[in-house]
């Protein structure tokens, strides 16, 4: 299976095609609802973000606490659609990839095409399995948000499928599949 290194290069992104199964390796950032809201507020008032979005991959997740002897608890993807309101602004600011589960709206897909970004789906509900592919986890920002804090993860052999590629091909866009909003 193809291995892709995070942060992603422009060539990597262009080559990734919808439906392709990949293994992610490298550094990715965990952020979900509350962290997105805070980051957007920071952008609006011109504050620095907790991490530079340039070239990065954000993983939509809210892991369980780490049991003793483990770097992280169960850590599967959450529903990406809830971040659709925030994602285009991040993509405009340099975000190159997102990992989550479920479909994205038109606004996100159009931004991905315009700025060259990719959306990967991980297996939802496989948090115990995916946690084993996470080698390190550190809190980067917003510890007060608990499970919604921003984390920096080092991952290896983290299985994903290219759900929406940078040309806008969408695995969820099937005649009988999930409806487009």
């Amino acid at each position: 299976m193809k291995i892709i290194k995070a942060p992603l290069s422009t060539e990597d992104i262009e080559q990734l095609k919808m439906g392709e199964e990949v293994l992610v390796e490298g550094v990715i950032y965990v952020a979900r609802d509350a962290a997105h809201k805070k980051m957007v507020q920071s952008i609006q008032v011109g504050e620095d973000l907790p991490f530079d979005l340039q070239g990065q991959l954000i993983y939509y997740a809210g892991p369980c606490p780490a049991p003793p002897g483990k770097v992280i608890g169960s850590a599967g993807p959450t529903t990406s659609g809830r971040m659709d309101a925030y994602a285009p602004l991040f993509i405009e600011r340099g975000l190159k990839g997102m990992i989550g589960k479920g479909p994205r709206d038109k606004g996100v897909i159009e931004s991905m095409q315009k700025y060259g970004a990719v959306y990967l789906a991980a297996v939802g509900g496989a948090g115990a399995y995916l946690a084993q592919r996470i080698l390190a986890a550190d809190i980067v920002a917003y510890p007060e948000l608990g499970p919604e804090s921003i984390l920096k993860l080092t991952v290896k052999d983290f299985p994903c499928i290219v759900a929406i590629d940078s040309q806008g091909n969408d695995i969820y866009d099937r005649p009988n599949g999930s409806e487009k909003k």
């Binding site: 049991p67 608890g73 169960s74 599967g76 509900g125 496989a126 948090g127 115990a128 399995y129 946690a131």
Partner: peptide
């Protein structure tokens, strides 16, 4: 496999 790991290692099946 996830179900197997969760029960053996006593970790949550899903983070949610």
């Amino acid at each position: 496999e996830n179900a197997q790991i969760a029960v053996c290692e006593k970790v949550a099946l899903c983070q949610d």
